[in-house]
Design a protein around this nucleic acid. Structure first.
Lengths: 192, 192
DNA sequence: TAGCTTTCTTACCATAGGGTTAATTTTTAC
DNA sequence: GTAAAAATTAACCCTATGGTAAGAAAGCTA
């Protein structure tokens, strides 16, 4: 529901009536079935999604057809193909609903342009971009310095409830291992 | 030299005399010896660096004392510990000069605050943040879907002149492999 | 509930890359 | 320019993870 987004914004900044109205005007609520694709590799992209229920992921296919999950998104997270959005290139990612989900859909340019109409959004958006940078830096560092098992532990911490919604091979493809390796790790952990 | 930065900015946006003066006022030119550390893990960080000559890198140490290079920076690149800058946490990275280098040092908050005095910087800074996000996304995807050899090829493309400045183990620690593995890859490529 | 489909586990062997050490080459420092 | 230090290569074997395939379990569908 749109109220989820409004309260998320209001937890970070005061929101005028007019600004709220504008958000209502450019937002589109969508309910989606498990398996729906919001963005498809190779298509043009101009939408960003705020998740209000369910679970989605973005992934790419490598030249051998193997999937690599870049991001999961649950309630109150944003998801899109940010490479495509920020570079105006075609999508290299696919965004898929892992469960029945509800999202708020925005035209990325309209959303991005809010600060032109409502300058109070300027630092809010800047701050979100900075946090995005931080989370990506962290992901890179974790991938470099942690073992597959440590990355799995961290995943369970960071996404405590997501395991119910995802297939093992989704998690494996996020961790950068095969589902067989993940299965081995789970067996090993169950023994301890 | 500061002129390098000015012309880099002017290649992306018009720059008023006043704005230029302001940049001169908050910038500090520094010449550094090979091996100097600009940021040390564990210390507080409030500086960002624009490289005008030489070559630097940022890296972290894992719990086994192994180095992992997050970024290289050559002429016209920015480098810092962006996690620390954007979260106000202590540095998790170390920034090191790989060669004698020249940088322009900024207080990160002052640099970031330019758009408050000169609003024309707002979209410039936003755009830089977006490009930062894109490059990090790309790094993650490359690390996930390419082999060590493919990542090395890409590295040579992206940093064509950097090999002269860096030790093999710097490159290996950027690629996520050991220097022995990199050595093997180089031998293999030399044979073809 | 039965039957079908998908996912998960297990076991096998294969392989990329890691760790250690020693020999060689390159760089640094005097 | 030479000696010392550091980096690279090479060879060894080791380990974590991958690929394939088969069986077990779970989830859907009728």
């Amino acid at each position: 529901m749109l109220e989820d987004l409004i309260s998320k914004i209001e937890s970070q900044m005061p929101l005028s009536i007019d600004a709220k109205k504008h958000i209502f005007a450019i937002a589109r609520e969508r309910d989606l079935k498990k398996g729906s694709l919001l963005i498809r590799e190779g298509n043009s992209v101009n939408k960003t999604f705020f998740v209000t229920a369910g679970c989605l992921r973005s992934y790419c296919l490598d030249k051998n057809g193997k999937e690599h999950t870049l991001q999961f998104a649950i309630k109150n997270w944003w998801i899109s193909d940010f490479i495509a959005i920020y570079t105006n290139e075609l999508a290299t990612l696919t965004v898929e609903c892992l469960t029945d989900s509800s999202v708020i859909e925005f035209n990325a340019k309209e959303l991005d342009g809010i600060h032109k109409l409502f300058p109070e959004f300027e630092s809010f958006q800047r701050h979100n971009l900075e946090r995005h940078v931080v989370s990506l830096h962290r992901r890179i560092l974790n991938q470099m310095q942690l073992t597959a098992e440590e990355r799995y532990d961290l995943f369970l911490e960071q996404y405590p409830d997501i395991e119910q919604h995802t297939r093992n091979y989704h998690i494996a493809s996020y961790l950068g291992i095969t589902q067989q390796s993940l299965s081995r790790i789970r067996v090993k952990k169950a023994k301890n």
